[in-house]
Design a protein around this nucleic acid. Structure first.
Lengths: 363, 363
DNA sequence: AGACTCCCCGGAAACGTTTACAGCTATCGG
DNA sequence: CCGATAGCTGTAAACGTTTCCGGGGAGTCT
């Protein structure tokens, strides 16, 4: 009885050949039974039994090579410690799971080489598609995205001409919402704690902040502007620097992590929030609601963006010939306790009123 | 000239056949050049050129089928919104990256079926190994883990006899550290906000809390014990319930998310922290340092556990015959402002001293 | 000059699966 | 009673890559 090929691989794991041999049928029959298509009752029984006996588990890689799909979708974000990405991920996960696929997340740590490396690696067929949210976009990056072997959807701003599915928001406008709100509340010395200016969101928010102040005829005082990165510690340190040289009556932060850092710095410095300094964050993450006082924040619709990105991706996986699409989710302001008071607010020292932690109202 | 097989797949992507044909060499030579092993200068030039012209990118799935490895490692956690897992992930990522592999994360959402499904799917060769941190462990689960086709390392408690690499901590002992500290500070009405008792950590922490109180001769008052899940909102709600019926002078929380919720509830209820109620969390995540006042927390060494788990996994990938190993990381208490004061603390109302946000001291 | 070594190359097998195709048997309808 | 049909089965090709192996050419040493 000449077996035609090795049936037991070196690592001892059974293959479909093992099962077929044990069941006394061909590998075709075995495969069919294992996939639940066809097979006589007798064959089905024998194959099932054999498979159970040897503990057969199919090799997904081999299956994927044949079927040209893996059932996996990846999400690449810069920093998974930022709750905004967690929220986005949850939304994506929901959509992806409903299509019977599984979502994998990769944190690039903002290292651009890492991100392109990921693209070149994962995208080379390990996944059926991927969603990436880059905060810096280089040309290298762009070409890697454009000729990715698998469908890619970008969450965030991209050059206008890039032929890539893209879900964006308008954080410039988001900054305007925050500034308008603070100005309406009587604030004039409005500070700004931003992330790095060489990032896409950093640049957009800087531009938005300046434009918004200008629209109210308020000159920009660069003493009131600080830059760190998009993390808690940087936000706190930047705010400390800012407070050491200026005296804002309001602070806008480029994201919620920075805003939490700013809140800490303000409280440590003995400022009351919102009485002395009103505070507005951005992204409207769970973190904003966790703080005391709860933080006002500009929602950039991260859940909505995630959902839409996932839908775009699934559509493109289904039909690669679709033209590149671009969707936009509008920002909106959620006002909470950290910016609720109007100046002047001559309340005496002490903790704020019993329930300043209202769930917030949408502006 | 009869080509022996289809060279341009339906989706138009070039394969090594395309490149070889265009360069006028065999696929063997093409493959060698592309992998940087062997090849005459002339061949190398021709193949490189051809590859560049057609935009060849290798199919990782096919490569993996041949090489029996993917260069990917997965981490499965329950809730990636919990910063403790983010910290663990970072540690794992560092180790994994240093081995030239890439880390993928999957959030199971605590749905047990999801987790076993993931195991059965990912583990079927899509990844070279995986680290999982289950919070509930069923028999089903256990068998899925035991006969996973790829190496698995578990972070967390497991049945003593399970032959699986395993990195654990001792959260029972961690609870003792917290309680000892509070008792030493003069607290006696110590409350406890826990996660679900049907989870492994929930059960361990409950046992630890009760044992620790007993060791001080303090009877457990069930009015002072509440259960929610391991999230912020649940922690806040549970604390509200607890405060409505009891008057603790200290609160221990089963993790930092719960502690943050508890802090919010306490402040909303007008309690001063730590003067009226001392607060201790668990996991010592970044979140604890973000709060005002900063939270004391029992560190369970999540970074260390992550690092060790990754090392165990890499070792096992390298040598599958190693005996199952079990490592333990001891907990330690980090005291910060939220529990720094000793009772009685007759300080007048108002914000705490200027800098209660020290970086904490290890007990 | 002949033998030996070294390098390069191409053919073909292999990784483990799915599936098109063709052959076979049994059943059914006319 | 015979041809068509349906259902099952096995052979083999295919997915795209790496790698073993044998052949051949050039260079070197004796």
């Amino acid at each position: 009885m000449g077996r035609k090929r090795l049936q037991e691989p070196a690592d001892g794991r059974p293959t479909v050949h093992t099962v077929a041999a044990r069941a006394g049928v061909s590998i075709a029959s075995a495969s069919r039974v294992l996939n639940g298509v066809g097979g006589s009752p007798e064959t089905i029984r024998k194959v099932r039994e054999a498979a159970a006996e040897v503990g057969y588990v199919p090799n997904a890689i081999a299956r994927s090579l044949q079927s040209q799909r893996t059932g996996l979708v990846a999400l690449a974000v810069e920093d998974i410690g930022n709750p905004v990405y967690v929220e986005m991920m949850r939304a994506i996960e929901a959509v992806v799971a409903s299509s019977g696929r599984q979502l994998l997340v990769h944190a690039t740590g903002g290292r651009i080489d890492n991100e392109t490396a990921l693209l070149r690696r994962l995208a080379n067929r390990y996944v059926d598609g991927m969603i990436v949210s880059p905060i810096r976009v280089t040309d290298d990056h762009l070409t890697a995205l454009v000729d990715s072997p698998v469908p890619v959807v970008v969450v965030g701003q991209l050059g206008a001409d890039a032929p890539i599915d893209n879900v964006r928001t308008d954080s410039r406008h988001g900054m305007a919402l925050a500034v308008d709100h603070l100005v309406a509340a009587g604030r004039r010395r409005i500070g700004f704690v931003n992330g790095p200016l060489d990032t896409v969101p950093g640049a957009a928010r800087d531009a938005g902040f300046r434009a918004a102040l200008a629209s109210h005829g308020i000159p920009v005082d660069d003493e009131l502007v600080e830059v760190g990165d998009f993390q808690y510690a940087a936000g706190r340190a930047a705010t400390e620097r800012l407070l050491a040289r200026a005296d804002p009556d309001a602070l806008v932060c480029a994201n919620d992590l920075i805003a939490v850092g700013a809140l800490h710095a303000l409280l440590v410095a003995g400022r009351r929030v919102p009485q002395d300094v009103a505070l507005v964050g951005m992204d409207d993450t769970e973190l904003a609601r966790m703080m005391f006082p709860q933080l006002s924040s500009v929602s950039l619709g991260s859940t909505e963006r995630g959902r839409r990105a996932a839908e775009l991706l699934l559509q493109r996986i289904a039909d690669a010939t679709l033209p590149p699409r671009r969707e936009q989710v509008p920002p909106h302001l959620v006002v909470r306790a950290s910016s609720a008071a109007t100046l002047p607010a001559p309340r005496p020292a002490g903790p704020p009123t019993t329930h300043p932690s209202s769930e917030g109202v949408t502006a």
